[in-house]
Computed example of a mutant assay.
Amino acid sequence: MKKLYAILLFGLICNLCFAQDSLDKEKLLEFYQTQRYAEAASYLSSIYPPETNDVKALAQIAYCNMMAGKLVDAEKNYQKINQLQPQQFAVLFSLANINSRRGNKKSASDYLLQVVAIDSNNFSAYKRLADYTDSTGLKTQYLQKANKLNATDADVAFDLAFIHRTQKNYQPAYDVLKVAIAADTSNMILQQALLPVANQLKKYNEVIVTGEKLLKTGADGNVVMDVGKAYFFLKNYKKAIGFFQMLERMSMQNESVFYYMSLSYREMKNYEMAVKYAKLTIDESISPNITAYYNMLGGIYDEKQQLTLAANTYKKGLSYNANKNIYYRLGLLYDLKLKQPKQANTYYNLFLKSKDLEADDQPQVDYVKMRMEEFAKK
């Protein structure tokens, strides 16, 4: 028996030595340098048997498979390493990365939670955990932990400040960004993120100084808006209008821009322009589909036999835009259900005069004409 064990041990040693001696390190290096990772993985797999427990070999094969995009094979290799030598950070991070790339965020998070269970101060794990969760509460918790461990990391500071801002916690958002900006004074992304927060905290002069410096490198619409608002709140309405007009020239006007322009002109007693932009504010705030929505709602009331409510709802839709479908439905409502032919005739007429009638509307057109002829005979 001892002789048999000796023979088996000798064979294993010989096989291991053979595998190591036959490895062409220069060939492997060439694969790495030319980023031919799939070939490198195949080459290593041809040297080391599938049942190998050589952790270094498995790590090389796993890495090459991962870099080659062969994620299933890479995961199998890393899982085997994790079984042989558990709790290795590099392996757990690699498994988390692979699962993330495959869309399995839960498994990715599970591997990272194993990391923080071993090292509760692992910044990278908390940073990635924040990326992998859809829970705002957990994301905030992970980002706060990561930010506490490294307050100068720009990505964490930006994401954490964004959450604070959406929750209207403006002072914490401001504080987080200021620390990160102090560590990287040339980071324009962080400085831009600071502007709307600073406006909320009434730090208008800071917004103007920072914003105008940023605009020297390029006219970003969000920066222009923040600076314009800062001038507005400082009651420098002429300056504010100048920035808002810049947004118009950039075709970046919206409801908010028109609103502040109307208020600025009103404060300057230019009521004609104030009215113009007030109307534009209203137009911009109304969905182009609102008439169709009222048409839908009116139809529901119509089916429920709430006829007066249906008529009023249809008419509300017409107060925004003319609509052939609403004219037709109102005609039918007054004709067939409310028995008011005069009103029905009015809306049938408006339907026929609609400029957007199409070939598909011909059956409705024929019906309306027939009904109007019948009205005329009575």
Rank of each mutant, 00 (worst) to 15 (best):
T52H: 03
F93G: 05
I118F: 13
A19F: 14
T152H: 09
N295T: 09
S186I: 06
K235L: 15
Q253S: 07
Y48N: 01
A292I: 10
N325H: 14
K76V: 10
Y237C: 04
C14T: 15
K148L: 10
A38R: 04
D155V: 11
Q253G: 13
E374G: 00
K203A: 10
A19V: 14
A219M: 10
G331C: 05
A198D: 00
Y320V: 10
S100I: 03
A359R: 06
T291E: 08
P86K: 09
S251A: 14
S135L: 03
M252P: 00
K337Y: 10
E30W: 04
L307N: 12
S186Q: 14
K202M: 13
Y170R: 09
Y170N: 11
K216Y: 14
A19Y: 12
E267Q: 15
Y170G: 03
F351T: 14
T291G: 05
A154D: 06
Y78A: 00
N104I: 06
I118Q: 13
M296H: 14
I326R: 03
A182L: 02
A90R: 14
N254K: 03
E206R: 13
N77D: 12
Q167S: 12
P288M: 02
V176I: 11
I189L: 11
I290H: 01
V368W: 01
L29A: 08
R102T: 12
G69L: 05
E26C: 00
V275M: 03
V227R: 06
Q85C: 01
F10E: 14
A41F: 00
S120N: 10
A130N: 03
K139R: 15
V257W: 03
A62M: 06
K27R: 14
K279Q: 15
G211E: 01
Q83E: 14
R165M: 13
A183I: 09
P86V: 04
C64E: 07
D361W: 10
I181V: 02
V275Y: 15
D110Y: 02
A38P: 00
I208K: 00
L9H: 08
A173K: 04
L4K: 13
A6C: 12
L330Q: 06
D110K: 05
L84Q: 05
Y132W: 08
N270I: 12
D155C: 03
Y63Q: 10
V365A: 01
R329M: 04
N321V: 06
A219C: 04
K80N: 14
A59L: 03
L95A: 02
A182F: 04
Y259K: 07
T291Q: 00
N270Q: 08
D335I: 03
E267K: 11
E284T: 11
Q144D: 09
K139Y: 05
T308F: 01
A376M: 04
A198H: 08
I290K: 02
K377S: 07
K76Q: 11
Y43S: 02
Y48L: 12
N169G: 08
Q305R: 10
N104W: 02
A219F: 08
D110Q: 13
L309A: 10
A38D: 05
K2W: 08
E30S: 13
Y265S: 00
R102M: 12
N147H: 11
Y126Q: 08
A292G: 05
M296K: 10
A180G: 06
L112K: 07
K315L: 15
N150R: 07
L71D: 13
A274T: 08
F89A: 13
Y63A: 00
L29V: 12
Y294K: 00
Q200E: 15
